[in-house]
Amino acid sequence: MPGPKLLDPSSSPRAMLGAELRHKREEAGLTQEELGSPLFVSGSFIGQLEAGTRRMQMDYAVKIDEILATDGYFVRNCEAATKSKYPDHFAEAAEAEAIATTIKEYAPQLIPGLLQTKAYAWAVCRTYQPTAPEDVIDGTVTARLERAHLLDHPTTPLLWVVLDEAVLRRNTGGPAVMAEALRHVAELIRKHRIIVQVLPFSAGAHAALEGSLKLMAFADAPPLAYLDGLGTGQLLDDPATVARYELAYDLVGASALPPEASLALIESAAEAYSRE
Protein backbone atom coordinates (compact mmCIF):
# COMPACT_ATOMS: atom_id res chain seq x y z
CA MET A 1 0.00 0.00 0.00
CA PRO A 2 1.33 3.51 -0.80
CA GLY A 3 2.59 5.56 2.13
CA PRO A 4 0.27 8.02 3.82
CA LYS A 5 -0.18 11.46 2.38
CA LEU A 6 2.06 14.06 4.01
CA LEU A 7 -0.37 16.71 5.18
CA ASP A 8 0.41 20.17 6.47
CA PRO A 9 -0.70 19.93 10.12
CA SER A 10 -1.73 23.59 10.08
CA SER A 11 -4.12 23.18 7.16
CA SER A 12 -7.03 21.70 9.15
CA PRO A 13 -7.84 19.89 12.40
CA ARG A 14 -8.12 16.62 10.47
CA ALA A 15 -4.69 17.17 8.95
CA MET A 16 -3.29 17.86 12.40
CA LEU A 17 -4.79 14.66 13.80
CA GLY A 18 -3.60 12.62 10.81
CA ALA A 19 -0.06 13.92 11.07
CA GLU A 20 0.06 13.33 14.83
CA LEU A 21 -1.43 9.85 14.48
CA ARG A 22 1.23 8.89 11.97
CA HIS A 23 3.97 10.33 14.21
CA LYS A 24 2.75 8.59 17.37
CA ARG A 25 2.15 5.27 15.60
CA GLU A 26 5.64 5.25 14.13
CA GLU A 27 7.10 6.34 17.47
CA ALA A 28 5.40 3.33 19.06
CA GLY A 29 6.88 1.06 16.41
CA LEU A 30 3.49 -0.07 15.10
CA THR A 31 2.45 -0.70 11.52
CA GLN A 32 -0.91 0.52 10.29
CA GLU A 33 -2.21 -3.04 10.46
CA GLU A 34 -0.99 -3.48 14.05
CA LEU A 35 -2.73 -0.31 15.18
CA GLY A 36 -5.88 -1.19 13.28
CA SER A 37 -6.22 -4.69 14.73
CA PRO A 38 -7.40 -3.73 18.27
CA LEU A 39 -9.69 -1.12 16.69
CA PHE A 40 -11.22 -3.82 14.46
CA VAL A 41 -10.37 -1.82 11.34
CA SER A 42 -7.96 -2.47 8.50
CA GLY A 43 -4.50 -1.03 8.08
CA SER A 44 -5.92 0.81 5.07
CA PHE A 45 -8.41 2.54 7.34
CA ILE A 46 -5.59 3.74 9.60
CA GLY A 47 -3.79 4.98 6.49
CA GLN A 48 -6.89 6.90 5.48
CA LEU A 49 -7.06 8.55 8.91
CA GLU A 50 -3.42 9.56 8.55
CA ALA A 51 -3.95 10.75 4.98
CA GLY A 52 -7.02 12.77 5.91
CA THR A 53 -9.46 10.87 3.70
CA ARG A 54 -11.38 9.55 6.72
CA ARG A 55 -12.62 11.37 9.81
CA MET A 56 -11.54 10.20 13.23
CA GLN A 57 -14.63 9.31 15.26
CA MET A 58 -14.63 9.72 19.03
CA ASP A 59 -14.72 6.00 19.81
CA TYR A 60 -11.56 5.51 17.73
CA ALA A 61 -9.92 8.50 19.44
CA VAL A 62 -10.52 6.94 22.86
CA LYS A 63 -8.94 3.63 21.84
CA ILE A 64 -6.02 5.27 20.06
CA ASP A 65 -5.20 7.31 23.14
CA GLU A 66 -5.17 4.09 25.15
CA ILE A 67 -3.04 2.12 22.69
CA LEU A 68 -0.51 4.87 21.99
CA ALA A 69 -0.53 6.27 25.56
CA THR A 70 -1.12 9.81 24.29
CA ASP A 71 -2.75 11.14 27.46
CA GLY A 72 -6.09 12.04 25.86
CA TYR A 73 -4.60 14.03 22.96
CA PHE A 74 -6.83 12.50 20.28
CA VAL A 75 -10.00 12.72 22.38
CA ARG A 76 -9.33 16.40 23.13
CA ASN A 77 -8.79 17.26 19.49
CA CYS A 78 -11.32 14.92 17.91
CA GLU A 79 -14.34 17.17 18.46
CA ALA A 80 -12.83 20.09 16.55
CA ALA A 81 -11.69 17.78 13.75
CA THR A 82 -15.15 16.29 13.27
CA LYS A 83 -17.13 19.55 13.15
CA SER A 84 -18.69 20.01 9.74
CA LYS A 85 -21.13 22.26 7.92
CA TYR A 86 -22.53 19.19 6.16
CA PRO A 87 -25.12 16.70 7.44
CA ASP A 88 -23.60 13.95 9.57
CA HIS A 89 -24.26 11.23 7.00
CA PHE A 90 -22.43 13.19 4.27
CA ALA A 91 -19.71 15.06 6.17
CA GLU A 92 -17.01 12.42 5.85
CA ALA A 93 -17.72 11.92 2.15
CA ALA A 94 -17.55 15.69 1.52
CA GLU A 95 -14.17 15.87 3.23
CA ALA A 96 -12.86 12.97 1.16
CA GLU A 97 -14.28 14.52 -2.01
CA ALA A 98 -12.28 17.69 -1.35
CA ILE A 99 -8.94 15.86 -1.67
CA ALA A 100 -9.88 13.29 -4.32
CA THR A 101 -8.01 13.26 -7.61
CA THR A 102 -10.87 11.55 -9.48
CA ILE A 103 -14.61 11.55 -8.77
CA LYS A 104 -17.01 9.36 -10.70
CA GLU A 105 -20.70 9.64 -9.96
CA TYR A 106 -23.94 8.07 -11.14
CA ALA A 107 -26.88 10.39 -10.41
CA PRO A 108 -30.31 8.74 -10.78
CA GLN A 109 -32.62 11.60 -9.76
CA LEU A 110 -30.87 14.96 -9.26
CA ILE A 111 -28.03 17.00 -10.71
CA PRO A 112 -25.06 16.24 -8.40
CA GLY A 113 -24.27 18.85 -5.76
CA LEU A 114 -20.96 19.81 -7.39
CA LEU A 115 -22.87 20.85 -10.53
CA GLN A 116 -25.92 22.55 -9.06
CA THR A 117 -26.81 26.20 -9.52
CA LYS A 118 -27.98 28.28 -6.56
CA ALA A 119 -31.61 28.23 -7.68
CA TYR A 120 -31.58 24.47 -8.30
CA ALA A 121 -29.89 23.80 -4.94
CA TRP A 122 -32.45 26.02 -3.21
CA ALA A 123 -35.34 24.11 -4.81
CA VAL A 124 -33.86 20.77 -3.74
CA CYS A 125 -33.10 21.88 -0.17
CA ARG A 126 -36.49 23.52 0.30
CA THR A 127 -38.20 20.35 -0.91
CA TYR A 128 -36.21 18.26 1.55
CA GLN A 129 -37.01 20.65 4.42
CA PRO A 130 -40.39 22.24 3.68
CA THR A 131 -40.80 23.78 7.16
CA ALA A 132 -37.20 24.85 7.83
CA PRO A 133 -36.43 28.55 8.48
CA GLU A 134 -34.95 30.50 5.59
CA ASP A 135 -31.56 30.83 7.27
CA VAL A 136 -31.28 27.06 7.58
CA ILE A 137 -31.94 26.64 3.86
CA ASP A 138 -29.49 29.46 3.12
CA GLY A 139 -26.78 27.71 5.13
CA THR A 140 -27.32 24.38 3.40
CA VAL A 141 -27.31 25.97 -0.06
CA THR A 142 -24.18 28.01 0.72
CA ALA A 143 -22.32 24.90 1.90
CA ARG A 144 -23.35 23.06 -1.25
CA LEU A 145 -22.21 25.86 -3.54
CA GLU A 146 -18.89 26.11 -1.70
CA ARG A 147 -18.23 22.47 -2.58
CA ALA A 148 -18.44 23.43 -6.25
CA HIS A 149 -15.26 25.49 -5.88
CA LEU A 150 -13.46 22.16 -6.27
CA LEU A 151 -14.01 22.73 -9.98
CA ASP A 152 -12.20 26.08 -9.94
CA HIS A 153 -8.98 24.17 -10.57
CA PRO A 154 -8.71 23.60 -14.34
CA THR A 155 -7.97 19.89 -14.20
CA THR A 156 -8.22 18.42 -10.69
CA PRO A 157 -10.28 16.60 -9.65
CA LEU A 158 -11.31 14.77 -12.77
CA LEU A 159 -15.11 14.67 -12.55
CA TRP A 160 -16.99 12.09 -14.61
CA VAL A 161 -20.75 12.00 -14.13
CA VAL A 162 -23.42 9.73 -15.55
CA LEU A 163 -26.83 11.39 -15.33
CA ASP A 164 -29.92 9.27 -15.60
CA GLU A 165 -32.34 10.75 -18.12
CA ALA A 166 -34.73 11.21 -15.18
CA VAL A 167 -32.43 14.01 -13.96
CA LEU A 168 -33.16 15.94 -17.14
CA ARG A 169 -36.90 15.24 -17.15
CA ARG A 170 -37.66 15.81 -13.45
CA ASN A 171 -38.81 19.43 -13.28
CA THR A 172 -37.08 20.64 -10.12
CA GLY A 173 -37.82 24.25 -9.20
CA GLY A 174 -39.70 25.08 -12.39
CA PRO A 175 -38.77 25.44 -16.08
CA ALA A 176 -36.56 28.51 -15.65
CA VAL A 177 -34.54 26.86 -12.87
CA MET A 178 -34.14 23.69 -14.91
CA ALA A 179 -33.08 25.59 -18.03
CA GLU A 180 -30.41 27.46 -16.08
CA ALA A 181 -29.22 24.32 -14.28
CA LEU A 182 -28.85 22.26 -17.44
CA ARG A 183 -27.12 25.09 -19.29
CA HIS A 184 -24.66 25.32 -16.40
CA VAL A 185 -23.83 21.63 -16.79
CA ALA A 186 -23.53 22.07 -20.57
CA GLU A 187 -21.20 25.04 -20.11
CA LEU A 188 -18.85 23.01 -17.90
CA ILE A 189 -18.86 20.26 -20.51
CA ARG A 190 -18.07 22.69 -23.32
CA LYS A 191 -15.21 24.14 -21.25
CA HIS A 192 -13.85 20.58 -21.06
CA ARG A 193 -13.89 20.78 -17.27
CA ILE A 194 -16.12 17.74 -16.72
CA ILE A 195 -17.17 14.59 -18.54
CA VAL A 196 -20.89 13.85 -18.58
CA GLN A 197 -22.90 11.03 -20.07
CA VAL A 198 -26.65 10.58 -20.02
CA LEU A 199 -28.14 7.15 -19.39
CA PRO A 200 -31.31 7.19 -21.53
CA PHE A 201 -34.56 5.54 -20.55
CA SER A 202 -34.13 3.37 -23.63
CA ALA A 203 -31.16 1.66 -21.96
CA GLY A 204 -33.62 -0.23 -19.76
CA ALA A 205 -32.37 -2.08 -16.70
CA HIS A 206 -28.81 -1.34 -15.65
CA ALA A 207 -26.23 -2.15 -12.98
CA ALA A 208 -27.07 0.79 -10.65
CA LEU A 209 -30.86 0.59 -10.57
CA GLU A 210 -30.87 0.52 -6.77
CA GLY A 211 -29.52 4.04 -6.28
CA SER A 212 -26.82 6.67 -6.57
CA LEU A 213 -23.12 5.91 -6.52
CA LYS A 214 -19.99 7.99 -6.04
CA LEU A 215 -16.44 6.70 -6.44
CA MET A 216 -13.41 8.65 -5.26
CA ALA A 217 -9.75 7.97 -6.01
CA PHE A 218 -6.77 9.57 -4.28
CA ALA A 219 -3.12 10.14 -5.09
CA ASP A 220 -1.79 8.05 -2.23
CA ALA A 221 -4.68 6.38 -0.44
CA PRO A 222 -7.08 3.55 -1.38
CA PRO A 223 -10.27 4.45 -3.28
CA LEU A 224 -13.63 4.95 -1.57
CA ALA A 225 -17.24 4.40 -2.60
CA TYR A 226 -20.13 6.46 -1.26
CA LEU A 227 -23.76 5.35 -1.39
CA ASP A 228 -26.40 8.01 -0.75
CA GLY A 229 -29.95 7.44 0.47
CA LEU A 230 -32.80 9.41 2.04
CA GLY A 231 -31.02 11.15 4.92
CA THR A 232 -28.40 8.39 5.04
CA GLY A 233 -25.03 7.68 3.52
CA GLN A 234 -22.35 5.00 3.57
CA LEU A 235 -18.66 5.58 2.90
CA LEU A 236 -17.06 2.25 2.02
CA ASP A 237 -13.39 1.31 1.79
CA ASP A 238 -13.38 -2.49 1.62
CA PRO A 239 -11.36 -3.22 -1.56
CA ALA A 240 -13.67 -5.97 -2.81
CA THR A 241 -16.77 -3.85 -2.20
CA VAL A 242 -15.27 -0.80 -3.90
CA ALA A 243 -14.22 -2.96 -6.86
CA ARG A 244 -17.79 -4.24 -7.18
CA TYR A 245 -19.13 -0.68 -7.33
CA GLU A 246 -16.42 0.33 -9.79
CA LEU A 247 -17.66 -2.44 -12.08
CA ALA A 248 -21.26 -1.25 -11.66
CA TYR A 249 -20.23 2.29 -12.64
CA ASP A 250 -18.34 1.01 -15.68
CA LEU A 251 -21.38 -0.99 -16.79
CA VAL A 252 -23.63 2.04 -16.41
CA GLY A 253 -21.20 4.14 -18.43
CA ALA A 254 -21.13 1.49 -21.14
CA SER A 255 -24.93 1.70 -21.41
CA ALA A 256 -24.99 5.51 -21.47
CA LEU A 257 -24.87 7.79 -24.48
CA PRO A 258 -21.45 9.02 -25.67
CA PRO A 259 -20.43 12.46 -24.34
CA GLU A 260 -21.27 14.27 -27.57
CA ALA A 261 -24.77 12.83 -27.79
CA SER A 262 -25.24 13.42 -24.07
CA LEU A 263 -24.37 17.10 -24.44
CA ALA A 264 -26.86 17.44 -27.28
CA LEU A 265 -29.60 15.87 -25.17
CA ILE A 266 -28.81 18.11 -22.19
CA GLU A 267 -28.89 21.26 -24.32
CA SER A 268 -32.09 20.11 -26.03
CA ALA A 269 -33.76 19.61 -22.64
CA ALA A 270 -32.56 23.06 -21.49
CA GLU A 271 -34.02 24.64 -24.62
CA ALA A 272 -37.33 22.87 -24.10
CA TYR A 273 -37.55 24.18 -20.53
CA SER A 274 -36.70 27.71 -21.66
CA ARG A 275 -39.69 27.66 -24.04
CA GLU A 276 -42.18 26.64 -21.34
Rank of each mutant, 00 (worst) to 15 (best):
L68S: 02
E50P: 02
T117Y: 08
P112E: 00
T70A: 04
M56P: 11
E79L: 15
F90P: 03
G36M: 05
L39C: 15
E66F: 08
Y60P: 00
A51E: 06
H89F: 15
Q116A: 09
D59I: 01
D88Y: 11
D88M: 13
T82E: 12
R76Q: 14
I111G: 10
I99H: 10
T101F: 13
E105C: 00
F90D: 05
Q57K: 14
I99M: 11
S42R: 00
K63M: 06
G52N: 10
V62F: 04
S42T: 08
P108E: 09
V41K: 09
Y86F: 14
A94F: 11
Y106N: 01
I111P: 11
Q109L: 13
A96V: 13
C78T: 12
G47P: 10
E92D: 04
Q48K: 03
T53C: 09
M58A: 06
F45M: 08
F74E: 02
L110H: 07
A61K: 05
Q57M: 07
A69D: 15
I46L: 13
S37N: 03
I67T: 04
A91Y: 05
K104V: 03
T117M: 10
A98S: 15
Y73T: 06
F40S: 06
I46C: 09
K104S: 08
A100K: 06
F90S: 05
A80H: 05
S37Q: 12
T70K: 00
T101Y: 11
E97K: 09
L39Q: 12
I103E: 02
F74M: 07
A81H: 02
D65N: 11
A107W: 00
P87F: 08
T53D: 06
T102R: 13
M56F: 05
I64Q: 01
D71G: 08
A61R: 03
M58D: 01
P108H: 07
F45T: 01
E79Q: 15
R76E: 15
I111D: 08
E79V: 15
P87D: 12
A69W: 12
S44W: 07
P38S: 12
Y60S: 06
D88G: 14
K118L: 04
E66A: 14
A69T: 14
Y60D: 02
S44A: 15
Q116N: 11
T70P: 01
L115I: 03
R54H: 10
N77A: 06
Y86Q: 11
A81M: 01
I67V: 10
G43A: 13
K104F: 08
Q48G: 03
F74S: 01
A61P: 06
T82A: 14
